[in-house]
Each structure stands twice: as structure tokens, then as C-alpha cells.
Design a binder for these strands. Structure first.
Lengths: 235, 235
DNA sequence: TTTATAAGTGTAGGATATACACTTAGTTTG
DNA sequence: CAAACTAAGTGTATATCCTACACTTATAAA
């Protein structure tokens, strides 16, 4: 029987990292290919073809680990991108020829966004040295393929889910201050909040619980620490 | 070169139809297969494999038309389902063997939900007689594959988007009464609204515009008719 | 001890959400 | 043609929520 190879399926991960310096996204620097020294190497989102026997989220976890050594990241599917020409741009073809056995094949990709706290133990994707980097969201330039569009879709999803889905704690350290929480909301939702009103609202969320512990080593009044209670979600 | 046929991609459409008798979903009755007369034929969502050179939404439109003769339906992608075993259930295999050239192949499907008004010109998918039917949402039984799960995902998407995305008019006739609009909200969001408060809120939406026209032929005070202004959306 | 820094706190006014019942316009029936 | 039936249409008072706004406090550094 003639097997027609209809199309390929991949996952792409838009991993957001947050710390007090802002919101970042995890990008991979393409290695320069032998055949094309003219164009400077581009950045892209971590992503790859899925295997025949793995689920989509499983594929996203595997690909993210293989490319960045990150593990245990909160991941959520947000959109699937299937324009027939999404990988056909000239700038992308030579890179594809260097890594794919069937570089001309159409690829549909399932987008996942991921959330990581960059506060604690600095999860720098170390093993790949310069090839992986956290890039400030403001400073993201043109990416390979349709990855700017995918990034923008992920940002929309993050914005619309931050409040309703109680996912903010994925971007914060286990113990955090209310100023950190407010800063996160301000960066993600791109608007300022009034400190007192913000704190009034947080008091109503009974999954944000105050700890008997204070910030240390800051040259101002130390803030009380809080943590999230995953069980207490809803209500 | 050995072409490995990695997997197939399909679209499935969850088309919601609304009229004064409630919210329905469009289902297809599988034809009984020659090899298996024991199990009664099941219902399923309209869906099929996508073609090599078409976009995802384009595929959803084509498949929906081919299977139900419906055209020009509002369609929106909501989720992609990729469990490796999602088409491997025993009940589904004989049907797949009767319609697919590679029935054992893994299939990932992109889910679209669609919205149709069942008020005007009764868009009964006539050409396929008994094989296509509008089923009351309450009365949907077990469907083929993971289609109950897909339906439930579509319902979640519809609920969460009805208010924020101004899509209710896709489910209503061009000219509608405020009671119809309220009935729609009540059925989709599964809760009751106060008539006066509901109308106060509608007055604030400046994309709902009153017409100089009344209901006719009803045995009570005729209601004023309204229509949606697609341009006026936002604000 | 002074200074610098961000943490932490309350209130008043405006806007919004909720709860609630009677009158009206048209159709049907006797 | 009068009475009965039905769903449409309408306003207000109360409670709740949102918004705007400025000073005091705890710690580290100088």
C-alpha cells in the first residue's frame, strides 16, 4: 500500500518566566547552518515533532526538557496553528533542511504556554549554555516561522486566564510578598493597580494564605510573606 | 526513502443550534457496517481528516458542508484532542475500518465549535435525511470515540465566551426580542436572570439596537424587535 | 541618630448589582 | 363586544462593590 505522509504534528512551548525584573519568554537560538552563512541565526520557541505514541501534553513536556532541561513546568494548551504555509518562509527553509528528514512537509503545531518562577534557584537552562535564553518580553525581535504569532496568542491566553484560573502562583516563589503578586499582575495585565484596593481583593481570595514569616535583609520595612494553597482553589 | 506515516489530523465540529425550544447539537448517525451487526449504530460529531493543502478552519468549513450541507456557519477553534488512544476503543474500530484507508492510524483532532440560529428557515440538514439530526443537549447519549469529551469542551468554551465575545447573535434570528436573548443566556449559562435587570444591562450594550418593529401574531402584548450591529462591537 | 526605602493601613463617595410587582397591548373565547 | 389570557414592559430602594487618596512604620545603611 502506498503510504501518503499527510502532514506532521509538532508542539511549541511558550514558557513565561517571571521575577522582579519582569516577564520573560524562553527562546532558543538556532545554530547556524552549513549551507547558509548569509542570514544571521534566528531565535525560535522550543518545539519539535511529536512521537507516534505520546500524548500532546506529554510531548510538550518531553520537548521542553530535551531542549531546555526544564522539568515539572506548568503547561497548558492554548491554540493550534495550522496555516498550510506556516513553515514555508524562505528564512526558515535552510534551517529546516538541516534538522528534518522531510523538511518540505507541512507541519501543524499545538501551542502550549508554560509558567515558571525565576526567583528561586535561578532555573537557567544551563546545560545548553548560550543556546537557550530568557528574553524580556519587550525585547523579543522577529522569530522563526510564525513564532511571533504563537507568542502573541500565548500572551492573550495568559492575560485572560491569570485572574480566572488562579495560575499566578506558578510564576511566583513559594513564599511571596503582596508587592510581588501585585507586580506580577501589573506586568501581565499591563495596567497599574492601587496598592490598598489590590490588597483588599487579595484578602477575599481564600487560597492566598498569610505566613508567620517576614522578608529578611531588605533595607526597608520587611514585608509579610504569603503562600498559595492549591487545595483552597474555587470559592 | 521510507516514509513513515506518523499520524493523521482531523477536525471535529460541535455545532450548537438554538431556538425557543432549547439548545441543540448537530449529530451524525453512523451507518451500520457490514461486518458488525451486533452493536447498534452510534452517533458522532461531524468531522473528518483534513486535506494536505487546506487550513484548519477551511477544513472545518468543508467537512461541515460535506456532511451536513451547512454553509456560512460561525466556527471557532477551541481545543485539540490528541490522546494516542482516542480512536482505539473497540466500539469504534469496525466503523473506522469501513470508512478509512488506514483505520488503525492514530488521529489527532482539532475541535471547532459552531453556532447556528434554528429560528429562521429551519436549516434542517435535509439532503442527508435521517443521517443528520439536531439533538437536545440534555438528551445526548454516548457518542463515538471521545466525542462526549469534545462536546463538553465545546460547551465550556461557549459558556466562557458568550458574554465576553459577543457571539450570542450567531444563535438568534436577525430580528429578535429581549426575551429570546434572555432565554438564550439562561440556557447557555444554565442560570436564571431577572427580567428587569437583564434589560438594564442590554441597554448598556450599544451593539444591540432597537428596531421600529414589533412581533406579530402572538396572543399577548407584542414585543419590540432588536438586532445586533456587528460594527458597534467593543466599547 | 538620621536617612532612605518600601510596607502597611481606612474611609468616604460613586457606581454597580440585586430584589421585587404591577400595568399594558394584543389575541382568543364566549 | 366584553372578558379572560398571556407575555411585554417598566422603576425604585438597598446592599454591595469599586475607586480615589496620604500618612505611619519597620528595617538597613550611612
Amino acid at each position: 500500500m502506498v503510504t501518503n505522509d499527510p502532514l506532521h504534528l509538532s508542539v511549541d512551548c511558550v514558557v513565561f518566566g517571571y521575577n522582579d525584573t519582569g516577564l520573560k519568554v524562553l527562546l532558543i537560538n538556532q545554530k547556524e547552518t552549513k549551507e547558509d552563512h548569509s542570514s544571521q541565526p534566528m531565535s525560535q520557541l522550543p518545539g519539535d515533532l511529536i512521537l507516534l505514541d505520546e500524548g500532546l501534553e506529554e510531548a510538550a513536556e518531553r520537548v521542553l526538557f530535551e531542549l531546555t532541561q526544564l522539568r515539572g513546568v506548568y503547561l497548558k494548551q492554548f491554540q493550534t496553528f495550522g496555516d498550510p504555509d506556516r513553515v514555508k518562509d524562505l528564512k526558515d527553509r535552510s534551517w529546516l533542511r538541516s534538522v528534518r528528514t522531510q523538511p518540505e512537509q507541512r507541519v501543524v503545531t499545538v501551542g502550549y504556554f508554560g509558567l515558571v518562577s525565576l526567583h528561586e534557584f535561578n532555573p537557567k537552562p544551563a546545560s545548553f549554555a548560550g543556546s537557550v535564553q530568557w528574553v524580556d518580553l519587550q525585547k523579543v525581535g522577529p522569530l522563526a516561522f510564525d513564532h511571533n504569532e504563537i507568542l502573541s496568542g500565548a500572551m492573550d491566553a495568559l492575560q485572560s486566564q491569570l485572574e480566572s484560573q488562579h495560575i499566578s502562583f506558578e510564576l511566583l516563589p513559594k513564599k511571596f510578598t503582596l508587592s510581588q503578586l501585585q507586580g506580577l499582575y501589573e506586568v501581565v495585565l499591563e495596567k497599574k493597580f492601587d496598592k490598598r484596593n489590590f490588597r483588599k481583593n487579595v484578602k477575599k481570595m481564600n487560597h492566598v494564605i498569610p505566613l508567620d514569616e517576614k522578608q529578611q535583609g531588605v533595607m526597608h520595612k520587611p514585608a509579610q510573606l504569603f503562600s498559595f494553597n492549591r487545595d483552597e482553589i474555587e470559592s
